[in-house]
Each structure stands twice: as C-alpha cells, then as structure tokens.
Amino acid sequence: MKWIYPLLANRSFLLLLLVINFAGTVYGYVWYGWQLKETPPIFLIFVPDSPTASLFFVFVLVAFLLKKNWPLMESLAMVTLFKYGIWAVVMNSLVFIIQGELDWIGLMLALSHFAMAVQALLYAPFYRFKWWHLLITAIWTLHNDVIDYVFFMLPRYHMLDNFIPQIGYFTFWLSIVSVGIGYYFVIRPKRFKLDLY
C-alpha cells in the first residue's frame, strides 16, 4: 500500500484533487440551495454537511500545496469526510432498498461520497493534528448531530422520513466511530508519518 503515498504527495495530483474537491464543494452547496432558502439563519452553517466537509479538505489541500499543515482543518476534514461519506452511502442504499431503484443522481452521490471517505483515510499519514484538535472536531460533529436531529435541520430524504429516529441514532454512533478513526489513524499510532515536502 505504501506505493500510493508518492502519488498522493505529488503536486500535480494534489492540484487535481483540489479542483475535484472544490468543484464538488460548489456543487454540494448548490444542491442544498433549496433547503438553505428554508433554513433559519442561525442554522445555516450546519445544514450543508457534505460540502462543508469537502471545504475543510480544500483548505487542507491548499495548505499541503503551500508546504504547510493546518491541523484543525485536517482533523475536521478527516472526521467529517469519513462520517458524511459513509452516511450518504448508507442513506442512498436505504433509498434503493425502499424504492427498489436508485437514479443516476443517487448513484453519483453514493460513489462520490464513498470517495470522500476513502480520501480522508488515505491522507491520514500526512496529517499532524493533536488530541485537542480532535476534541474540537468531536464537539463540532456531535453538535451538528444535535442541530440535525433535535432541530430537524438534517438533509432531506423524504422517502426516509419514517426512519428519522433510527437515522439519528445511526448518525450519532457514526460520529463517534469517525472521531475514533481520527484517533486511531493519526493520534494513537507510533506509525510512520509522511511529509508532502
């Protein structure tokens, strides 16, 4: 697996990822546009979960290209990319189970969000965040769950409305697992650390 790290550290590849993630972030905010119009201003920052996750990673990639680390952005990116990447795959899988089909948009969302989760993990050896960055990230992530499932600011999947309590429970534990992954892959190990420069 170590063969992939020189590719991940390559500036041309980082630029390509930056373009892809920036475009995906813009698309994500546009996709949430109709829901954002109905969202009270106090909740606006907490509604577009996936594009905000990829925006965190855009900042990480910019820092890498500048030969720097931005640890808080790295922590936020890793945890939220993994969480919302897996969340969207599971939600679109549920849509397929309930409806018996998944349109091309749902398939595209599932595949692109799976890629979000994968890139979060692939760059783990390059991250430099500490436990207190992860603590801030955990507070952000769990607070977001409260906003979504107590104040009902979650992404709208109308065909899944009957399962919101179960989805909220799943999402809470997915947040815990995502924070745990940040700890396991970045803070806990005495494993190898890689530099991009």
Results as ranks from 00 to 15, higher is better:
residue 110 A to N: 01
residue 62 V to Y: 09
residue 179 V to P: 00
residue 150 V to G: 05
residue 192 F to P: 06
residue 145 D to Y: 02
residue 125 P to Q: 10
residue 60 V to N: 03
residue 177 V to K: 02
residue 176 I to A: 15
residue 88 A to Y: 02
residue 171 T to Q: 09
residue 114 F to G: 09
residue 190 K to C: 08
residue 155 P to K: 06
residue 164 I to E: 01
residue 97 I to H: 11
residue 133 H to M: 09
residue 73 M to A: 13
residue 182 G to W: 04
residue 185 F to H: 07
residue 61 L to C: 08
residue 111 L to C: 13
residue 87 W to P: 01
residue 124 A to Y: 12
residue 172 F to Q: 02
residue 185 F to C: 08
residue 118 V to W: 09
residue 172 F to I: 13
residue 96 F to D: 00
residue 138 A to H: 06
residue 115 A to D: 01
residue 94 L to I: 08
residue 190 K to A: 15
residue 112 S to H: 06
residue 191 R to C: 04
residue 161 D to V: 05
residue 173 W to Y: 15
residue 67 K to S: 14
residue 65 L to R: 06
residue 74 E to K: 06
residue 89 V to L: 13
residue 83 K to S: 01
residue 95 V to C: 12
residue 112 S to F: 08
residue 165 P to M: 11
residue 106 G to W: 01
residue 101 E to W: 11
residue 103 D to E: 11
residue 83 K to G: 00
residue 110 A to E: 01
residue 119 Q to S: 04
residue 132 W to M: 10
residue 115 A to H: 04
residue 146 V to D: 08
residue 138 A to S: 13
residue 131 W to F: 12
residue 70 W to E: 10
residue 153 M to H: 00
residue 155 P to E: 08
residue 134 L to D: 01
residue 146 V to P: 02
residue 146 V to W: 13
residue 89 V to Q: 05
residue 167 I to K: 00
residue 145 D to T: 00
residue 67 K to R: 15
residue 134 L to Y: 03
residue 175 S to C: 15
residue 81 L to R: 05
residue 105 I to C: 03
residue 181 I to G: 03
residue 146 V to R: 07
residue 78 M to H: 06
residue 121 L to W: 12
residue 171 T to W: 04
residue 94 L to G: 01
residue 155 P to Y: 07
residue 174 L to R: 05
residue 84 Y to W: 14
residue 164 I to M: 09
residue 101 E to P: 02
residue 124 A to H: 10
residue 126 F to T: 03
residue 93 S to T: 13
residue 113 H to E: 12
residue 91 M to Y: 05
residue 111 L to I: 14
residue 106 G to K: 03
residue 111 L to G: 12
residue 130 K to F: 12
residue 88 A to I: 07
residue 162 N to F: 14
residue 164 I to Q: 03
residue 135 L to D: 10
residue 133 H to I: 03
residue 188 R to Q: 15
residue 117 A to N: 04
residue 168 G to V: 08
residue 93 S to K: 03
residue 112 S to T: 14
residue 106 G to E: 05
residue 170 F to S: 06
residue 69 N to Q: 12
residue 122 L to D: 04
residue 180 G to S: 12
residue 182 G to H: 07
residue 97 I to Q: 12
residue 169 Y to V: 12
residue 140 W to S: 02
residue 192 F to A: 13
residue 62 V to G: 05
residue 80 T to D: 07
residue 144 N to Y: 03
residue 122 L to Q: 09
residue 130 K to D: 14
residue 188 R to D: 15
